[in-house]
């Protein structure tokens, strides 16, 4: 029983990181209709920036977190303005391909600016081991779970109450009608990219706290992708939950079957799910009209 509990709790902690990155995927998809293949890379860059800040101002976690957040905002805005906005109106395929090009650039830029060695992100917090009952977890793991909950709540409120959130839903539902209503699609896209970059960045910083910064970090993008599909590509909240489900499923598969199946568990889960609900757990069913 304790074993099961341990597996589930550490699964939720991993899943929370997936969930945050997956929410970033869904946010961009919802607002722009694109899959951003550079999501994992964006989260890696922010983590590296956080590491650089931590190296210069040691011991002040708030400064590091604040700096990393600011950097992720700039990164998101810059990507939208410089790379994505010129592609407005071009075929979706070409635009998605641009995000792949972007991923290559970010990945190499990381190695160009920093190096290939893994480094520990030391912000003076997050590594302590906390005991809940008999289960040991690191404080950063608790923090990432709390952050996911916070992000879920924040986005729920954002879509429901804020003007921009409603505008984003309008753009997602019908871009042309939204434009006619005076909503600037470009601005909505900018907001989506920025918000997506911020939550990817948060995930990156947590992942760096728990697993160090390394040039392999961008894999988190590919690993979180199943979470987005599970939750529904256009469902930001669903993607967050999807991440947790995938995280727990992975740990249970590795814990009870064999460690080698861990990496494909997410994919098996989504294949099974897509056979039943081809639009994701929380996604909207597409209705085809002739």
């Amino acid at each position: 029983m304790q074993y099961l509990l341990d597996q589930v709790i550490s699964g939720i902690a991993v899943g929370a990181i997936y969930g945050l990155v997956a929410m970033g995927f869904a946010l961009i998809y919802k607002a722009t209709g694109l899959v951003n293949f550079a999501q994992g890379e964006m989260s890696m860059i922010t983590a590296y920036i956080a590491w650089s800040i931590a190296g210069t101002v040691s011991g002040n976690p708030w400064l590091v977190v604040g700096g990393a957040l600011a950097a992720s905002v700039v990164l998101g805005l810059a990507i939208e303005r410089v790379v994505m906005r010129p592609m407005l109106g071009e075929p979706v395929f070409a635009t998605v391909m641009v995000t792949i090009g972007l991923a290559v650039v970010l990945r190499s830029a990381t190695l160009l600016i920093w190096d290939a060695y893994p480094h520990a992100l030391d912000i003076g917090a997050g590594r302590e081991i906390v005991h809940i009952g008999d289960t040991g977890v690191r404080s950063a793991q608790l923090a990432v779970m709390a952050t996911l909950l916070l992000a879920l709540g924040a986005f729920w409120a954002f879509f429901r109450y804020s003007r921009i959130g409603k505008a984003m839903r309008a753009v997602a539902a019908d871009e042309r009608a939204a434009k006619l209503m005076g909503i600037s699609a470009a601005r909505i896209h900018a907001v989506a990219w920025t918000a997506s970059s911020v939550i990817a960045g948060i995930a990156g910083v947590f992942s760096a706290l728990l697993y160090d910064v390394s040039p392999n970090m961008f894999h988190v993008g590919l690993k979180s992708f199943p979470a987005t599909i599970l939750g529904g590509l256009d469902s930001v909240l669903g993607s967050g939950f999807g991440g947790v489900i995938i995280g727990v499923a992975e740990n249970l598969a590795a814990g009870y079957l064999a460690p080698s199946v861990k990496e494909i568990t997410g994919f098996i889960v989504i294949i099974a799910m897509l056979m039943i609900r081809p639009f994701g757990l929380f996604g909207e069913r597409e209705i085809e009209r002739v």
Partner: peptide
């Protein structure tokens, strides 16, 4: 590698 990615982006742009 950076140039490789930039080339793809510019080309599609």
């Amino acid at each position: 590698s950076v140039l490789y990615g930039v080339a793809i982006i510019l080309f599609l742009r």
